[in-house]
């Protein structure tokens, strides 16, 4: 038999239905209404040019283009997000392992940590914890005024990694707050990832005489990592957004500096819209990137 097997002819589907048209029409109507309200009822003197000067400024003496408050804020937010994710991931993995441990103390301790943080509003947590960190932990670790002990080259590197030196201690305090806070959520991601691995894998690994450490390292964690990585990437995006709460303790990131700009210029609408756009521009590409990773199975899906 040599007949060619063709699929049945595709049915013609109307891509745009009447419902779509109705929805698009109402969206346009709402936009027009908003425009009308803003232009004719709000009576607000828009001044975008002034705000953009706070994004980049041109040095009058040299003519150089320099980043201004907004971009400095973006840089600080990215630093917070990057280091925050690293530290939070370490906390999360350690605490996540404690969550599935057989040791009662570790189990209760990690549970307490997760529940405490998840059931306190972030703002309240930041205030309580910041006071504790800045007045107790940082002096204890000898990290206050640490910048004075570094050589100029180290300082230059530190500036790129951790922001302006004079704000270093402040940055560190904010960073620890953020990492401890996000760490609780990563703990739960790690725990769920580990618990998603079937009991059979534990048993098979134990049955060939692996110690608990090697069961986790060689068998459970490599598999759990595949489950963990996508939500962990998502948590990174959340962390970019959540970093705005450390503005409350005067870490000079994007939200904090936007408050500065909107107070000095009194053009809050423009300032906050620019900031919203900047956050979006940071988070959306990350979201798209991680989605792509996830679809390709983080590049290592063999089964």
């Amino acid at each position: 038999m040599n007949e060619t097997r063709l699929p049945p002819p595709a049915e013609k589907v109307r891509r745009v239905t009447n419902l779509d048209i109705a929805i698009i029409a109402s969206v346009i109507a709402i936009l027009v209404f908003i425009y009308y309200r803003v232009e004719h009822v709000l009576v607000y003197n828009w001044n975008w040019g002034l705000i953009f000067e706070y994004v980049i400024r041109i040095d009058e003496a040299t003519g150089d283009i320099l980043p201004n408050l907004f971009l400095k804020g973006v840089a600080m937010t990215l630093r917070l997000a990057f280091w925050g994710t690293l530290i939070a991931a370490v906390i999360g993995i350690v605490m996540g392992l404690c969550r599935v441990s057989n040791n009662l103390f570790l189990k209760i301790g990690s549970r307490l940590y997760v529940e405490l943080i998840r059931n306190i509003p972030p703002v309240v947590f930041i205030f309580v914890f910041y006071f504790f960190i800045s007045s107790q932990i940082i002096p204890l670790l000898g990290l206050d005024n640490i910048e004075k002990t570094f050589s100029p080259t180290t300082l230059a590197v530190m500036r790129v990694l951790f922001g302006p030196t004079e704000l270093f201690t402040n940055f560190l305090a904010g960073l620890i707050c953020l990492a401890v806070f996000e760490g609780a959520y990563i703990t739960e991601i790690v725990r769920a990832g580990i618990q998603a691995i079937g009991k059979g894998q534990w048993e098979a690994a134990r049955a060939i005489g692996l110690s608990r450490y090697h069961v986790l390292r060689d068998v459970i964690m490599p598999q759990a990592l595949k489950t963990i990585l996508p939500p962990l990437a998502g948590q990174f995006i959340t962390l970019v957004k959540d970093s705005s709460i450390v503005s409350l303790i005067s870490v000079q990131e994007l939200t904090f500096l936007t408050q500065d700009v909107s107070n000095t210029t009194t053009h809050f609408f423009e300032a906050w819209i620019v900031t919203a756009a900047l956050y979006f521009m940071m988070c959306f590409p990350l979201a798209v990137l991680f989605q792509r990773f996830e679809r390709s199975g983080m590049g290592m899906q063999k089964h």
Binding site: G198, G200, Q201, E203, A204, A205, A207, I208, G209, L210, S211, H214, D218, V219, P222, Q223, K226, K302, H303
Partner: peptide, 27 residues
């Protein structure tokens, strides 16, 4: 004392060969 399970419980993230090598190397 070795054990063989109903559901095989091979380690899916490594090759057959690595499945066999893990126990001797570690234990």
């Amino acid at each position: 004392v070795g054990m063989v399970f109903q559901n095989f419980n091979l380690f899916p993230h490594v090759t057959v060969l690595q499945n066999l090598m893990l126990g001797p190397i570690r234990n």
